[in-house]
Nucleic acid binder design. Structure first.
Lengths: 232, 232
DNA sequence: CGACCGATTGAAGGTCGTCAAACTACGTGG
DNA sequence: CCACGTAGTTTGACGACCTTCAATCGGTCG
């Protein structure tokens, strides 16, 4: 559990209106006038794997939209062990709970090289007060979080270790936009699936022996998805 | 997995403004004028244990506010097994996802004798469009669902069977408003904790032998909460 | 080169699932 | 009234699966 300081690489973002993933983000439905409500800057940040966006006790002043990369939300439980409760990817909004006046509910760490837009909470609240065009997006985002959580419970926390690993790999492949996909460290797989790192490792080895999974460079893999689904 | 027809006992509800749990419910922040927006009736229903509020494929026309009792949200997975992904109690809103135009995401069944208010979706949507005083409640409710889900993942789906059972009992005790609390069938405990009914039964037996748990009449129990917490 | 970290593999033991039987509570029908 | 059937709970025995502990391997970085 390394603690590293965030090296922030700032770059003033021209305009949200020009955003390449405009249709995916929280501000998708805003019009030109709405954007005039933004006074404080929305800044672009790049993070390297292991760096944190925020921790539970950080001052809840920003939310983050993911432009590219993968983020894990981690819950450190009272007895020391930790559990990854969610994965967020392109277009997702990290830290949404602070928009309700809550503290950050998790620790958010980059898994892959990460590009995010850092949005001041005050700006979202202002826009949300002055135009109705955020409401639907907000509700849709909460909805997605909730259905992802259901999936996490039914697919990733139920059944035998082997099935959980396969479900996880299928999920990772489905949210990847390239042919290969992100393969977490065995420790992280364990924290997602509530199994040990050794068990995770054994399952990955087995799938490799069975030729349904190829491990590429560090943290990347490719899989025969069709055949893998038959193994469930 | 019994399928029973809902016996509905209807009673025209005087006014939401007179509601005994007014401060807990979705409409908590509405004022007198807002209530004039309601045209279709909100009706009071009583259900017996095992009866269902709705199933996944029901037409998504109503949401339900729980006045008293306990509801389980069930997810039937592709491979036949089922998993309980959430418990809802007094003041909770069942079926909230349909307000976003989605189908029901779960099957909702009564665990205890249940009293709910059945609210037409169309009314909530109208109020939500014409007044901002529902927005905050809606967001707060989604937020609670999400943090409950986190808790479900970290406490009820992680660790050894014994700890999971203890966490569940502590949770049930905490949401009960009397001294004793609801004790699920062993099968339901299994579906909540991703363990078998036999294991659930063994854990309950053990806790009884250790004198930290007393099983009362059917589906009720009392526990020494302080001592039980030390067993984690 | 050596230290270190993560991944892998092995062996041993514990926990939990599976199968089966006995027990309890409850309601029905003889 | 009692015998009986049903459904849920409990308990036991056994085996599979997973964790634990430990050793090894491979790659990276100083």
């Amino acid at each position: 559990m390394k603690i590293e300081v965030i090296e922030e690489v700032w770059r003033e973002l021209g305009k949200c209106e020009m955003c390449g993933i405009r249709d995916l983000v929280l501000f998708a439905d805003l019009n030109e006038d709405d954007f005039k409500l933004i006074h404080q800057p929305i800044v672009d940040m790049q993070l390297k794997p292991l760096q944190t966006l925020f921790r539970t006790d950080d001052s809840p002043d920003f939310v983050y939209t993911i432009r590219s990369g993968l983020v894990k939300l981690v819950n450190y439980s009272s007895d020391g062990r930790y559990r990854i409760v969610r994965l967020l990817g392109k277009g997702d909004l990290v830290g949404i709970e602070v928009l309700n006046g809550q503290p950050y509910a998790h620790c958010a760490e980059a898994l892959e090289p990460l590009a995010v837009c850092r949005i001041p909470v005050s700006e979202v609240l202002r826009i949300n007060r002055d135009t109705p065009r955020l409401h639907e997006q907000m509700l849709a985002r909460w909805q997605k979080i909730s259905s992802d959580a259901d999936c996490w419970i039914t697919e990733l926390s139920t059944g035998q270790a082997r099935q959980r690993v396969i479900h996880l790999l299928l999920h990772l492949a489905s949210i990847s936009d390239s042919d290969d996909f992100f393969l977490p460290s065995r420790e992280d797989m364990g924290a997602m699936l509530a199994i040990t790192t050794e068990t995770a490792s054994r399952m990955i080895s087995a799938l490799r022996n069975e030729k349904v999974l190829q491990v590429l460079e560090k943290n990347r893999a490719r899989a025969d998805l069709v055949q893998m689904r038959t193994l469930l």
